[in-house]
């Protein structure tokens, strides 16, 4: 259902960042600067480690970290758009009755 040629994970989001950040990504370094962002990546990665850390080797953990960096970048993009309180999610809850 999904073709991952342009995904949020890892390198794709690094390409959208500032050139110096993209260079860092190519050098295998963290794609994000800033203590607060690094801290958020570490904190979120902590959840992954707590749940699945025993299944991940160092190289895999590094790839997972890149994915988490992508999530944090996406978070920043989402949060940059301010919304009025009344804008609801694009989903509809229909109370259920078996007889329709």
């Amino acid at each position: 259902m999904w073709e991952l040629s342009d995904s949020l994970e890892g390198s794709q989001y690094s390409r959208k960042l500032k050139p110096d950040i993209s260079r860092r990504a190519k050098q295998g370094k963290s794609i994000l600067n800033g203590e607060a962002i690094e801290r958020e990546v570490d904190q979120r990665l902590g959840v992954v480690k707590a749940l699945y850390g025993d299944r991940l080797d160092d190289q895999q953990l590094e790839e997972v970290r890149r994915a988490v960096e992508g999530f944090v970048v996406a978070s920043r993009e989402l949060r940059a758009v301010k919304l009025d309180n009344g804008i609801e999610p694009f989903s509809v809850v229909t109370p259920y009755r078996e007889d329709g």
Partner: peptide, 23 residues
Amino acid sequence: FGSYSRVAVLAKDYIKAMRLRRL
């Protein structure tokens, strides 16, 4: 191992994405 990272997506981001999806 690709799926393991997804637990790091925050619920508030998912809801925000669904609100932006409406726009």
